[in-house]
């Protein structure tokens, strides 16, 4: 089967049997190489629309490697918030910058404000660019700014600077 044929066949396979998703998502890189990341999101989005699909999407996350988890996080806007939130919280607990960044994409609208603020602060801590944080300008509130101010003071005492994007956010919002 050529790579071009594989994706439609995998979609059909998942429609027929959602439990086949775990195997198909795992083998995507072997079939598609670098194109597998986008293909995985396509498959997961289709899976999410099936009856019981969201639970299968969550299953792919919990049994997934980093690549599969990143794909699930990208597909989370297609699943109900109650399913999405535990996965987002797990990704935010990780120390993998790719997972933390992905958890603050569009699906982060499902997170409560306190969890979201901690996520943004963790981005600053890990040096993850804030440009990828979904809806940052609208959602940033005085409490987040106070938290950033506290981190800035600690960094200042240690002779270290905040990343430029966080420093800019602090300056803009304090004006």
């Amino acid at each position: 089967m050529t790579p071009d044929e594989w994706l439609p066949a995998a979609q059909a396979g998942i429609r027929q049997d959602p439990t086949a998703a775990a195997r198909l998502l795992a083998e995507a890189p072997r079939r598609l190489g670098r194109a597998s990341a986008a293909a995985r999101v396509t498959l997961l989005t289709a899976l999410a629309e099936l009856p019981d699909g969201p639970a299968h999407v969550a299953g792919v996350y919990w049994t997934g490697d980093s690549g599969e988890r990143l794909a699930v996080l990208a597909a989370l806007p297609s699943v109900p918030q109650a399913v999405a939130v535990p996965l987002l919280e797990d990704a935010l607990r990780s120390n993998d910058a790719r997972l933390v960044a992905a958890a603050l994409g569009p699906a982060a609208t499902a997170l409560d404000q306190g969890t979201w603020r901690q996520g943004v602060l963790k981005c600053v801590f890990l040096g993850i660019p804030l440009a990828g944080v979904h809806d940052l300008d609208r959602r940033a509130d005085p409490e987040l700014i106070a938290m950033l101010g506290g981190l800035a003071a600690e960094r200042d005492a240690a002779g270290r600077a905040l990343p430029a994007d966080a420093a800019a956010l602090l300056t803009e919002t304090r004006q």
């Binding site: 120390n95 910058a97 660019p129």
Partner: peptide, 12 residues
């Protein structure tokens, strides 16, 4: 992108 030159594993 999250890694700064010369730093080791960032600690969250």
């Amino acid at each position: 992108a999250a890694t700064f030159a010369g730093s080791s594993i960032a600690r969250g």
